[in-house]
């Protein structure tokens, strides 16, 4: 909490790098169980037989949805190579940063983003419910996304979407930060004729299927994508159905057409 804000004020990087972010939940996870060592549980693999593991009735199990976090005892931390766990899922209600701190940290990330990408002329606007909406030129997508993942703690690429605006097409990236607990929206414009943009699936492998879908339905090509095939429609299909030029006919219209055609 305090170190987060101080560190952000002192150093040019506002938030811990991605390596720390990904380990943050683990810290949260291992914080409680290390304090005490629960009694070892029976291992049904070692002694296979009718005797059941005492997991469900174990007193350390946090099964009851107790509202107070103090009443919840976390299960034993997982040991490497340990064959069996009958511990129940932990119920976590830990919050690392207060909402105000998170909002402040979010604003700091946006400030640093602005400073770091001065040359790119980012258009940053506020939007209810998310950290910011960043409009950026299409050719800086890789630099921007790498920076946001590594320095901006946005380790999760939630969605890549494309919208056909008739004159041009918009590509939207929605990223999530576990540290800020918020989304950021990146948006860029690509030309309507031969729409293409660099793929971010090298930065987030999870973006792979979203980009395939955007290519499939909206026809935006992602350069250097490892496997840019159609994902929902069949190979060889000629159209990109979510384009506004692709007309959807109501059933009755189709009927009229077929009748007049006859």
């Amino acid at each position: 909490m305090t170190d987060g804000t101080e560190g952000a004020a002192a150093t040019p990087t506002p938030t811990p790098p991605a390596a720390q972010t990904s380990s943050a939940p683990k810290k949260e996870a291992s914080a409680t169980p290390t304090s005490e060592t629960p009694p070892p549980r029976p291992d049904p693999r070692a002694a296979p037989g009718p005797s059941p593991p005492s997991g469900p009735s174990s007193p350390a199990a946090p099964g009851t949805p107790a509202p107070a976090p103090a009443a919840v005892k976390a299960a034993r931390p997982p040991a490497k190579g340990e064959p069996l766990r009958t511990d129940k899922a932990r119920a976590v209600s830990v919050t690392s940063l207060s909402p105000e701190d998170r909002a402040r940290a979010g604003r700091e990330v946006v400030e640093h983003l602005k400073e770091h990408f001065l040359a790119e002329n980012l258009l940053i606007s506020e939007r209810a419910g998310i950290t910011a909406r960043v409009k950026f030129p299409a050719d800086s997508v890789l630099r921007l996304c790498t920076w946001l993942r590594d320095e901006g703690t946005f380790a999760h690429c939630a969605m890549v979407a494309a919208i056909d605006w008739r004159d041009f097409r918009e590509v939207l990236y929605t990223l999530w930060s576990d540290h800020l607990r918020s989304y950021i929206e990146l948006t860029t414009v690509v030309a309507a004729e031969d729409p293409h943009i660099e793929s971010v699936s090298g930065i987030w492998p999870g973006a792979n299927c979203h980009e395939r879908e955007a290519w499939d339905l909206v026809g935006v090509r992602f350069d250097h994508h490892p496997d840019l095939r159609r994902i929902l429609l069949e190979e060889g299909y000629k159209f990109h159905p979510l384009l506004k030029t692709f007309e959807l006919h109501e059933p009755e219209e189709l009927e009229v057409k077929s009748r007049s055609g006859r």
């Binding site: 919840v72 997982p78 766990r85 899922a89 932990r90």
Partner: peptide, 24 residues
């Protein structure tokens, strides 16, 4: 409410998380 979390990262962990989620 609380968030169900497990550390196993395997099929068993997913089963556990969903069971706890039902309780929540």
């Amino acid at each position: 409410f609380q968030v169900a979390v497990h550390d196993a990262a395997d099929v068993y962990g997913r089963y556990r998380v969903r069971m706890e989620e039902m309780r929540q």
